[in-house]
């Protein structure tokens, strides 16, 4: 039971983690992109639709990633070149996306409700035969879908990027833009690259929600984008911090699923559990941080 809960925590945490890392890139360069929720939702739809039409999940993921990359660049473009408030633009993308996906699904598929894609290609699952004998190990370490493994690899890659010169430059731009300019860094280029990463990661995160289920609903992301933002804000630039917070959030999402299945708690209350837990995490984190400083803020 506990191991299963852990395992489903990992699975629930992965999309949040991937999106959070994306947001964290934009936060590192000092321009937090809050369009995560909308970007994820759009790629949820696009990936599953393209996968069903082309009969290739890989193509679905790829197209979704490219598209969400464009969305992310759209936010950057409006902010940088039309001086729009990046925050309001992010809200706008979230609102627009929630309309867009329903519009698309009603035009392309003639339905607005839950859409099942029956002919969707199955995503291969990796089994480790060696682990099959031990129940606990099997639950925890085996039977991950390729998509999940890709996500883990991507998480690793993001961590690596922070170790490259580009990662260093991103931090410098975010911390002190004017110094970065003085040193002749290409500030715009660095920021664009962080938005590209953000888009790619959100695209992947969105695909991870819809593809394995082979279905799409308008409320599919269910605030996961916002949870990812919280993880990014709390974790800061440290990918390990983001990892930690995301796992906690994943756990609370998994827990709420369990509660929905195994208890008589009303669905509305269960749905709000991840948010409440997140708020608690945030509070505890902030209390500890202030305690550490040992003084008035």
């Amino acid at each position: 039971m506990l191991t299963q809960l852990l395992r489903s925590s990992i699975s629930s945490a992965l999309p949040i983690l991937v999106a959070a890392l994306g947001a964290s890139f934009t936060q590192t360069v000092g321009k937090l992109n809050i369009a995560i929720e909308g970007t994820m939702l759009t790629s949820c739809f696009v990936s599953v639709y393209v996968a069903a039409r082309s009969n290739s999940w890989l193509l679905g993921v790829t197209i979704a990633m490219i598209l969400s990359c464009l969305m992310s660049l759209f936010v950057w473009f409006l902010h940088r070149y039309l001086r729009a408030d990046i925050f309001v633009v992010g809200l706008g993308v979230n609102v627009a996306a929630s309309g867009l996906v329903v519009l698309l699904s009603s035009i392309l598929l003639g339905s607005k409700g839950t859409i099942f894609f029956e002919e969707i290609p199955k995503i291969p699952v990796l089994r480790f035969e060696a682990l099959q004998r031990n129940e606990t190990l099997r639950t925890l370490l085996s039977d991950y879908s390729v998509l999940e493994l890709v996500a883990m690899f991507v998480v690793f890659l993001s961590w690596l990027i922070t170790k490259t010169p580009l990662g260093l430059r991103m931090r410098a731009v975010g911390k002190n833009e004017s110094v970065a300019r003085q040193l002749g860094l290409n500030v715009d280029g660095i920021r664009i690259s962080s938005f590209v990463f953000c888009g790619l990661l959100c695209g992947l995160a969105g695909s991870m929600l819809s593809l394995p289920l082979g279905l799409f609903v308008a409320g599919m992301t269910n605030n996961r984008g916002w949870l990812a933002l919280v993880a990014a804000v709390l974790g800061g630039e440290n990918p390990l911090g983001v990892l930690g917070v995301s796992l906690t959030l994943g756990f609370s999402v998994a827990l709420s699923h369990r509660l929905q299945l195994f208890t008589a708690l009303p669905a509305e209350i269960v749905l709000s559990i991840p948010l409440i837990l997140t708020l608690c995490v945030v509070l505890i984190y902030n209390v500890l941080k202030i305690g550490e400083k040992g003084g008035s803020p």
């Binding site: 909308g38 729009a84 408030d85």
Partner: peptide, 8 residues
């Protein structure tokens, strides 16, 4: 949503 994006 688009109005949101353009409004600022």
């Amino acid at each position: 949503g688009i109005v949101f994006c353009l409004v600022t």
